[in-house]
Structure formats: C-alpha cells, structure tokens
Amino acid sequence: MTAPLDVSGTELQAAPEAVVEGAGGAKAIQGRSLGQIAWMRLKRDKVAMAGAIFVIFLILVAIFAPVITGLLGHPPNEFHQDMINPETMGPKASWGGINKDFLFGVEPVNGRDLFSRVVYGARISLLIAFFATMLSVVIGTVLGVVAGYFGGWTDMIISRAMDVFLAFPLLVFAIALAGVIPDKAFGLEGDTLRIVLLVFIIGFFSWPYIGRIIRGQTLSLREREFVDAARSLGARGPYILFREILPNLVAPILIYSTLLIPTNVLFEAALSFLGVGIRPPTATWGGMLSDAVHFYTVPHFMFFPGMAIFLTVLAFNLFGDGLRDALDPRSSR
C-alpha cells in the first residue's frame, strides 16, 4: 500500500471506533486499514448484510437463469395456451394458475411461465443497471476530478454542463431519445442495441449527480495538508491526482455507485413500463407491469414483477446504506 493512503489511514484511526474494534478482537491492538475497519463494521450491520446476500443471490439468479428455469420452469417465451381461458384470456385455474409446474402462475393471453419471466427479467434489469452505473461513475469521476482539481475555466464549463444536464426533464428526454432511435443502428440490432442504448441513456444522464459529489470532494481534498505536503516535496499534477486524490475518492465512489444502482433499476423499469425499453418478447419487469395494467383482475401478474423490482431496489439500498455507514465514519446512524 502506498504511503499517502497510510497517511489518511492514520488520520482515520484517530476515530475511537477503530481502537474499540481492535480491542474487541482477541488479538493485540494493531493498525488497521480503512478497508478492514469498514469490513468489520459492515459485518456487524445485519440489515446491510441481508441486503448484500440478497444482491448476491440476485446476481446468481441472473447468471444462472437458464439453469434455474430449466429445473423449475419453462422457457420464458414458450406459450401455454392450454392454461388460458380463451374467453377471458385469464388463467384457467384460480390463483393465477400457480402450481408446482408454474411457481408464479402464468401470464394472461399466452400462458407464459411468469416465474421464468421474472427470473429472466433480473438479467436485463441488473445488466442495464450495472453498466449504466459504471458509465455514469466513469464519466462523473473523470469530469468531477478534472473540474475540482483544475478549477478555473475547466471547472466553470464542466459545472455548467452539469447544470444543463440537471435542468433537462430527464425522463421526457430519455423517452424521446429511446423512441427515435431506429431499429438498427451503430452496427447493432435487436436486444443488444436496446440494451446498449438504455445503458447509454441512463448512464449518460445520471453522471452529473456523481460528478457533483466528486467535484466537491476533490475541491476539499486539493486543499488538504497531505496534498500540500506532496506538492512541496515536488510531486507533479498526475502524481497528485492519481496517487493522492483518487485513492481518497474510492470510498465516496463506492458508496454512491451502490446507491446509484437501485435508482437505475427503477429508471430502466420506468422506461420499460412506458414502452420504450427492451422490445418484446424479451421479459423485463417494467414491461410485465405495463402489460399487467390491463389485467388487474389477475393480481398475481402485477404482484411478482412489482415485488421483484421492490426487493431488488430495497436490497441495494440496504446494502448501500450499510456501506456508507461503514466507510464514512462521520455519518451517524
């Protein structure tokens, strides 16, 4: 580990918890890095850990969707017309057709396995949320650091740009953009194009939120003693940026990206709900909800995708909250 980080590490160790925690362990008191302290705190936060476990579970579900549906369900786009009452288009059996073959029942009209569709929906939802978050974190961090570190005109332009982005009626704009993009563009088509497009739209419009935070942090870090010290020792721009400032931004970046993921899950669901997301028949939670609007008399149809969105967002929020408490000793709980 590099020296500058140790500097900040020692600074943090002044916080009483670090000592108490050390005392809690049987081993002798020794210096702990920021990461170790955070991990200790996080482990004690049962709610956050529950969130984390659910998130891991979700990721596994998304990755192994074909295996899971192979064992417990049917292919997500397969019709089961025999499960449907043709007159009302609703499931023939009561309780939405829930039984051991169809764990969540069947979709009205075509009798598709709701369980499989919810499972596959996790893929789209997480994929887009993760990549969109990565995109906005990268843009936000780079521009935030540049603005905060260089100041002056650079800061002025980037800050104005952030203001413009924040002034955009985001959802309206995203819908407009998702609506006018043709079916085949940039050498891509079908689901791939839509996913890339959504990642781009969501990521591109959320960067200013993270950018502002990073800019603020950089501004204050720039004036800190250890940066001054490095500078007086002859360190130059890039060194200070990458070795002194960036490592100190890891914590806020980690916290805000964890908290941005659930927002992006909601964003993707909203776009799919409004019909500008992924195209059918690919299953998405938002898209299923928007289909369920017309079938509110079969409540299981809206319940499962709705709960899937809710639990996913909740889990990320719980984990994100815990992470913030663990990483940021000043935050109070």
Binding site: Q81, P86, E87, M89, V109
Partner: peptide, 15 residues
C-alpha cells in the same frame, strides 16, 4: 399459424 392462439392474442372470441 395457430389460429386459436391468434384469436386469444386479439382478445378471444368475445372481445
């Protein structure tokens, strides 16, 4: 083409 599935898709025999 599955005419029954099509009919159901267009909302069934009544609607």
């Amino acid at each position: 083409a599955d005419k029954v599935a099509l009919q159901t898709a267009y909302n069934g025999p009544f609607a």
